[in-house]
């Protein structure tokens, strides 16, 4: 059986790609998408651990459900903000939205 480390490696890679996407891309939508990636990476790790660890089975997977729910909520809100922002500024590049400058 493929050992736990492989899944973890996969999850880390996916997480890194997601992070890269969040940091590098300018459009809010891509940022949200990359965020989803990171969440999925987390899910993979969760499921991997729950399967390979002793104790009552499925403990990790339950948690994935919650992650799913939250991710969904998060995407909704993120995109809503993006659309509202778009309506205001006609542009969606994140680096131009800096009204909160100090």
């Amino acid at each position: 059986m493929t050992p736990l480390q492989h899944y973890l490696a996969l999850s880390v890679a996916l997480f890194a790609i997601g992070a890269w996407g969040v940091m590098a891309r300018r459009s809010i939508i891509v940022v949200v998408m990359s965020l989803e990636l990171m969440l999925n990476a987390a899910n993979i790790a969760l499921v991997a651990f729950s399967n390979y660890s002793p104790g009552t089975p499925g403990r990790g997977e339950v948690f994935v459900f919650f992650v799913l729910a939250v991710a969904a909520a998060e995407v909704a809100i993120g995109l809503a903000i993006g659309i509202a922002m778009y309506r205001l500024r006609e542009r969606l590049d994140v680096d131009e939205l800096d009204e909160l400058k100090g």
Binding site: Q5, L8, V12, F15, I17, W20, N51, S53
Partner: peptide
């Protein structure tokens, strides 16, 4: 990009260093 890669590498190292008590194969909940 380099930041993400550095992150990945560090996480990998951390995970590899950590020891998990793992059962041999995937269980079937």
């Amino acid at each position: 990009l380099p930041a993400a890669l550095a992150l990945a590498v560090t996480m990998a190292v951390v995970l590899s260093r950590a020891s998990f008590s793992t059962t041999p194969g995937p269980r079937n909940p």
